[in-house]
Structures are given as C-alpha cells and as structure tokens.
Design a protein around this nucleic acid. Sequence first.
DNA 1: TTGTAGGCGTTATCAA
DNA 2: TTGATAACGCCTACAA
Lengths: 348, 348
Amino acid sequence: MVTLKDVAERAGVSPATVSYTLRGGKHVSKWTEERVRMAAHELGYATNMAARSLRYGKTGVIELVVRGLDVSTIYAKMVTHVKHVCAGRGYHSLVMQTEQDPQTLRDAVGEINRQSCDGMILDPCGMTADAIRKLSQNRPIVMLDDYSGAGIFDNILTPHRQMAYAATRHLIEAGCRRPMLVGASPDQLRRLAGGVTEPVKQRLDGYTQAMDEAGLAVEPSRMIDAEWRYFVGVDVGRELARGGRLDADGLVCCNDTLALGVIRGLADEGVRVPDDVKVIGSDGITMGEFTVPRLSTVELDMHGMIEQAVDMLVDRIDGSYDGDARQMTASFSLHCRESCGCGAASHA
Amino acid sequence: MVTLKDVAERAGVSPATVSYTLRGGKHVSKWTEERVRMAAHELGYATNMAARSLRYGKTGVIELVVRGLDVSTIYAKMVTHVKHVCAGRGYHSLVMQTEQDPQTLRDAVGEINRQSCDGMILDPCGMTADAIRKLSQNRPIVMLDDYSGAGIFDNILTPHRQMAYAATRHLIEAGCRRPMLVGASPDQLRRLAGGVTEPVKQRLDGYTQAMDEAGLAVEPSRMIDAEWRYFVGVDVGRELARGGRLDADGLVCCNDTLALGVIRGLADEGVRVPDDVKVIGSDGITMGEFTVPRLSTVELDMHGMIEQAVDMLVDRIDGSYDGDARQMTASFSLHCRESCGCGAASHA
DNA sequence: TTGTAGGCGTTATCAA
DNA sequence: TTGATAACGCCTACAA
C-alpha cells in the first residue's frame, strides 16, 4: 500500500504538503506541485478512504437499503436514479438488499452509526420509525413511504390513493363497468391490523372514490386481498379465472409486479388481456414495457422522487438543514400501453 | 459519536479492556464483562468501522460490480446469491452498478485500492484485464467471464459453447428443423473484432456443432447479429417476422433478456410462441418464470458459480492462497417451460 | 486479569 | 509556501 509518506519521500517534501497539494491547495509552488503529482502518479498512490473517513468523520457514501432487486421490482429502477443523483451531489452510492428479513434490515440500519456511510435512503419494510431511530441514533435517514413515525424522519410518500383513483378512473373511461381492485380489500385491512395498513387503506379509498364518481357499485367481491407480489398474483389470476367465470371486466392492480403475476395466472386459465379483461398496474417497472401484453400503469416519477430524497439527505449530512422532519409526496403519470385496452397504446 | 473511551469511562476500566471484552476475549472477569457490556449498551456504542478498517488494513466488505440491475438481468439474481454466500463467510457485500460506462467502471475498480473494500467480484464489461490490473494494483479481484487476460485474475467462465449446444440440441429434439441462432453470427464476429469476441464465437460453435450432429444445414441467414439486450431483441423479433415470413421454426437466443425482447417483437407482428416458432433463452433470469409464455432456458447454476467466486476471493483476501490465477467454469441445466414447446413444461 | 503505549493514514492547525 | 504536530477511534504487544 502506497501512502502519503511514500509519495512525500519520493517528491522530497512533507506528507502534509502532499496531502494539501493533491487535494488542490492553492498555495503551492508550481515546482512542488509538479514533483508531487509526478511522484504520486509513479507510485500509483490512492487515498486510503478508511483513514480519510476516520479523520473527516464522514465517508462520502450514501447507502440505499431496499427489499430486493430480483423479480423485477421498482427498486432496480430506483438504484439507477439514486446513483446518478448522488454522483451529481458528490457522493458515492451503494446498494444493500434486505430481502424483507428483519434481522438483515436491523443490521443494515446499524451500519449507519458505525461510520460505514453518511446517510441512508431506506425502505422501512414494515419496521417502525421508532425502532429505526433507536438503532440509528439520529443519523441522517430518508424513509421511503413510511407511515409509522409522523415527524421522526424525512419521508417520501407514495400517493397510493391518487394512484388507485387514476388507475380505476382510467379503466372506467376505457369502458369497464365492473373494475376490480386487486391488492386491497376490507378483509386485507383487518388482516394487516397492527401492521402497515395505510397503503391498502388509501388504495381502497382511491378505488372507491373513482367508482362512486362514476356511479358504479362497489362490490365486496370485487376487492381482492393479495400481497403485492408475483407469486400471489399468479394464484389470484388463476383463482379469479377458474372455471371461465371472471366477474370483472377490469383489474386495478396495486403494483406492477402483482399485475404481471395476475396476467400470468389468467393466461394459465386461457383468459386474455386486454381482450377478455383489461389490466392496469402501478409503479412503472421497466419490465412492463416488454411484456406480452405491454403493461399499462400509473408510473411514479422516480427521478423526481429520488432527487428529493437525496437532496433532503444531503442537507442533513452537511448540516445545512437540521429542522423538523419533512414529508414529500411523489408525483406520477398514467402510461397507457396495451393491457388497459383503451386503444391509446403508443409504442413505437 | 460514542467511542470506546466513553464506554471505558462509564464502566470504570480502560479502553483496551473494553475493546478486548466486546470482541469476546476469554480472560475477562465476569464482573468486568458485565459492567462493560452494560455501559456499551446504555451508551449505544457501535464500533467505528473507519477506525477499525484503518487499524486492521481490512474492511470486511466485498463489492460486486455489475453492469446494471434494471431491465431484469441476470445480475439482479446474482446479487442475492453474493449476499448470502458472503454472509456465510463473514463478509458484508455491497453492490455497485456501472451501466456499461467505462469511466464509472474505472472509478469502481479504483476504489479497491483505497481501502473501500477487501475484494471485488467484477464484470469486466469489455475492459481488459490488463487495464484493470493497472488500476487495482494486484488487489483481490475475481472476474466474471473475462477473456482478455489469461492468468491475470481468478476468473469464472460462462460455458457459452456448451449452453448454445444444449439449447440448440433441445430445440432440434423438440422437432425444429430450421432453428436459428439469435445473438451470434459470422458478421457479428467481424463487427466485434478487436473487442470481446469469445462469447459470440463459442455460441456460434455450440450451435454449429448441434446442427452438424443432427445433420442439419447451417444457413448464414439463420444466424442473426444482435447485441444481447431487450431493445435489440424487440427489433430483431419484428424484423424476422415482418410480412409474415419467418424463415425459422426455432430461435436459440444467446440470453434471456434478448429472448424476451424477441418474443415481444414477434408478438408485434402476430407471431405466437411456441405455436408459430419455438424459443429458448440462456441464463435463467427470474423473470422468465412469469412471462407469457414462460421462458424455457439454459440456466446457469448461479449459486454454485457465486460460491466459487466468493471462495476464491476470500482465499485471496485472507492470504490462504496467493498462487496462480485460477479459472473455473460455471455449470448449467436445461429448464423447459413453455416457450420451447417441447411439451415437457412443468409449472405447478 | 487489566492497563499503557504506539501506530494505522490522513488532514487541520499553527508556526516557521 | 512548507513542515511539524496532534488527533480521528481502534487494536495489539507488552508490561504490570
């Protein structure tokens, strides 16, 4: 390992001068600067980040902690945006996945007060803000869609109600009279009691509002309890179509992953999308552009969302803000591809 | 920030004793141990990793450097395996994506001699082993499918030839008489001259061998030059099917991503898989289980592959091996789902 | 069984 | 403009 001292010896100056010079100090003679740069280059010197972090009390790293990147979720898309935005702010970004494992999540959060990173963008994944605060000891964290801790952490919300409203309304406008909500139901709300219910509640609200406005009846049998995941979607799709009797002409799915699962399950029973039933998802995973049929969806403005997250985080890290926890809501837009069958599909 | 000294004061012992105790030292009196643990707990002490890394000269972190996690690639799957295997070996793992950007890749590789991590599993992504060695100064790196630097780095190879052979042979056995290879052609080989040609060359070889063995003619028009990516696949699919004249009864695609793109492109022209043409991919991305149709594929043994990679890496890191560069080849297996139309589809 | 002392590589301060 | 020095927090010989 080549250190400042090595470079200093070779250049015939002191380590302090080398450090100062290499970081662009102004008051260095041309002659010294040249010798230092040359020596550093020849020796292949690279700053030891562990030492620098120790000295600075900062690492220059922002960590993104998410559930899982596999099974094409929205998180894979998020990673890319985080990287670019962080780079623009002079930070490195790293990704860590918890796979919904509480212990892994705890460990990940704990890393923040071990000087492994300066801040985190964190999907709390069911863990309460209070528990996270205990583990993280007030270090900078921006939460993604947290409902457990009003005012504890900066928080970026997903507008579940509005997204469900927009999706439902679109299917109605596309001609559906019996749209069904997949991924939220009164039963589900009861089942989740004590856990995170807000997203489901809001989805339910948005759906109901759109139905009401259109003068359509909200039937309990048209709200399906389902975790927002692939496998679950497959089962739901099969179940709904079993025996060829699908009691809906449209499916409003609470996320894209679930929607793709449902479409897969329906296909198993010979039900075609959008011919036999229209489907719309939510989130805007990249994969949705390539499936058969292409998935219509209510897409989150991921870039804007991550920009806000990183900005809030960076402000906390460099101390330019240390007031109350802030809360922002992501924006979204409707993307009609094929699965909603509205006829506006616009692929090149 | 709580330090060892703080804990020491509270417990009424020296920092050295606290350090020793907390890391499970044997020669500590029960009384001391209790006081130390209590003090540490009460203060919420957490080891400062920057300091520990500086002291040890190690970080306990292994970094996985890949192209991109989005657009469902095999890398998302890899991440999960790396995480588990590393955890089993007592290492943390972190992910960094380069998005094929040479500068990002260079920066990432440079991090290894700044004490940011102890070792890397690296997709060289076209960069030569020589260039990487210069940047990394002989620190532990395991390459994924590198063909540029025989004997420079430990390397895990993808058996391109065998995989193409297995895929082609399977389509032939499923009844194809005019299987086409998508993603490798003599033209493509010429186009890539000077870059990374080995994977394409091997795919071509494997395909040719299977065709020869079956007594089928290898037609130049049935080997398609195509980058192994979604978008490209979509274009290829459309192009092949244009005007309803597809001159093949099977498509051997060089990876799953490409295959899904091709299927999407074919669908745009009304060509159905596997009814009108059979398709098989390569790699085994998770998504392939859920698409319509489900994607048949030659699946890499990702777990075994990553276990080997991590083992080789850890041996280098802890110094238990420092001999010549080793080379391993991943194994694989055929997974018949729907797209190959062989009739053996085995989904629950 | 516990404590003292020194150093890992870097940088900020201050003196020269 | 440059250099000596101390400190960041931790760990390990070695001494007590």
